[in-house]
Simulated scan of single mutants.
Amino acid sequence: MHFAKGHGTGNDFVIVPDLADERPLAPADVAALCDRRFGIGGDGLLRVAPSSEPGTKWFMDYRNADGSIAEMCGNGVRVFARYLLEQGLADGPEIPVATRGGVKHVRLEGDQFSVDMGPATFGPTSQAGLEGFEWPGQAVSMGNPHLVCHLGETDELDALDLHRQPRFDPAVFPDGVNVEFVVGTAPHVRMRVHERGVGETFSCGTGACAVAAVALRRAGSDTGTCEVDVPGGTLTVTVADETIHLAGPAAIVAEGTARL
């Protein structure tokens, strides 16, 4: 099968075109392709499939690296749009993409892509646990679940071992959760994230949106712009009254043929 490899601020994806919707991938196939030693390697897989959603041509079939289904991926949808443009499958500057989290409108702005991610929905307060420690956190949905935990010191953030899934309350998050750890105050914060079904990643677009929404609220405002530093770069999140816009880079770095 043909594939491409792309990333958004270091959050990397295997991209598989299935333009006639002839080859849905089993979870084991996705895991094999995303394996960093025995496959191509990626935090997730983007299958390009035809869309049945009115006003859209392509559906982003996104899977986590372990093959599990995820509702949405903010970095992935920007990489998906970059791939569509480079392959001549879409015209710019605005590209509607069907996802499990609804239709996302991606816009090319200079050398970056901006995505209308929809609003953040705040849930209950909860907590995350790691290595015998517990941190309070705020549940936020960006179409997928997040738990945003604000830490006190940068050194505390740097010392975290995120190879393992942090503990969380399954009653609050029955389908698992992406856990973000944050330092700083709006309009500029820094985060690390453990993504469900993947592990620690260099970036998480939906996570950055959740973090910015929480950081702005902590600073006394429900709207505004927040720069979010992730290990792979910086994302710009603009929180408006009814939606959130995520802006950042997206690049295709390789193409080739893979065997399963």
Results as ranks from 00 to 15, higher is better:
residue 107 R to N: 04
residue 154 T to N: 02
residue 190 R to I: 08
residue 133 F to I: 04
residue 172 V to D: 07
residue 138 Q to C: 04
residue 63 R to E: 04
residue 208 A to R: 03
residue 142 M to A: 05
residue 101 G to K: 03
residue 161 D to V: 10
residue 249 P to L: 00
residue 52 S to W: 03
residue 234 T to P: 02
residue 173 F to D: 06
residue 77 V to W: 08
residue 11 N to F: 00
residue 91 D to Q: 14
residue 35 D to C: 05
residue 227 E to T: 04
residue 83 Y to Q: 03
residue 43 D to Q: 08
residue 231 P to T: 11
residue 186 A to T: 01
residue 210 A to T: 00
residue 106 V to L: 11
residue 67 G to N: 07
residue 48 V to F: 07
residue 254 A to P: 06
residue 109 E to Y: 10
residue 76 G to M: 12
residue 11 N to M: 06
residue 161 D to N: 15
residue 247 A to G: 00
residue 169 D to I: 10
residue 96 P to D: 04
residue 146 H to V: 05
residue 22 E to L: 15
residue 149 C to N: 14
residue 238 T to S: 09
residue 63 R to G: 00
residue 14 V to E: 07
residue 3 F to G: 08
residue 240 A to D: 03
residue 249 P to S: 09
residue 196 R to F: 06
residue 104 K to I: 05
residue 217 R to M: 13
residue 211 V to M: 01
residue 119 P to V: 11
residue 218 R to Q: 12
residue 235 L to V: 13
residue 172 V to F: 02
residue 257 T to P: 00
residue 106 V to T: 13
residue 68 S to A: 06
residue 35 D to P: 01
residue 200 E to L: 06
residue 220 G to V: 06
residue 219 A to W: 00
residue 127 Q to T: 09
residue 147 L to Q: 12
residue 84 L to G: 14
residue 257 T to M: 01
residue 2 H to I: 14
residue 78 R to T: 04
residue 148 V to R: 00
residue 80 F to W: 09
residue 62 Y to E: 01
residue 63 R to I: 06
residue 37 R to Q: 10
residue 159 A to H: 08
residue 136 P to M: 09
residue 206 T to F: 00
residue 22 E to R: 13
residue 129 G to V: 03
residue 136 P to A: 07
residue 202 F to L: 15
residue 114 S to F: 00
residue 129 G to E: 07
residue 46 L to P: 15
residue 249 P to K: 02
residue 251 A to V: 15
residue 236 T to W: 12
residue 37 R to F: 15
residue 28 A to H: 12
residue 251 A to C: 01
residue 241 D to K: 10
residue 209 C to P: 13
residue 129 G to F: 00
residue 120 A to W: 11
residue 68 S to P: 03
residue 170 P to C: 08
residue 66 D to F: 13
residue 13 F to E: 05
residue 66 D to V: 09
residue 243 T to A: 10
residue 166 P to N: 01
residue 162 L to Y: 00
residue 101 G to T: 14
residue 155 D to R: 15
residue 31 A to W: 07
residue 190 R to D: 04
residue 30 V to A: 01
residue 247 A to Q: 14
residue 129 G to R: 04
residue 76 G to K: 08
residue 56 T to L: 05
residue 106 V to R: 01
residue 72 M to L: 13
residue 258 A to K: 05
residue 183 V to K: 07
residue 221 S to E: 14
residue 190 R to M: 11
residue 253 V to I: 15
residue 71 E to V: 05
residue 183 V to S: 03
residue 137 G to W: 09
residue 116 D to I: 12
residue 93 P to Y: 10
residue 98 A to K: 03
residue 198 V to M: 05
residue 68 S to R: 05
residue 61 D to K: 03
residue 44 G to K: 10
residue 24 P to N: 08
residue 52 S to D: 15
residue 179 V to G: 06
residue 143 G to E: 04
residue 259 R to V: 00
residue 164 R to G: 08
residue 147 L to P: 09
residue 149 C to W: 12
residue 137 G to Y: 11
residue 115 V to E: 01
residue 215 A to P: 01
residue 144 N to G: 07
residue 150 H to N: 10
residue 21 D to T: 05
residue 24 P to C: 08
residue 188 H to W: 00
residue 98 A to H: 10
residue 250 A to C: 04
residue 165 Q to H: 04
residue 146 H to N: 03
residue 14 V to Y: 12
residue 36 R to K: 11
residue 126 S to C: 14
residue 40 I to W: 14
residue 78 R to I: 11
residue 168 F to S: 01
residue 96 P to C: 11
residue 169 D to S: 09
residue 54 P to M: 02
residue 138 Q to K: 06
residue 207 G to Q: 11
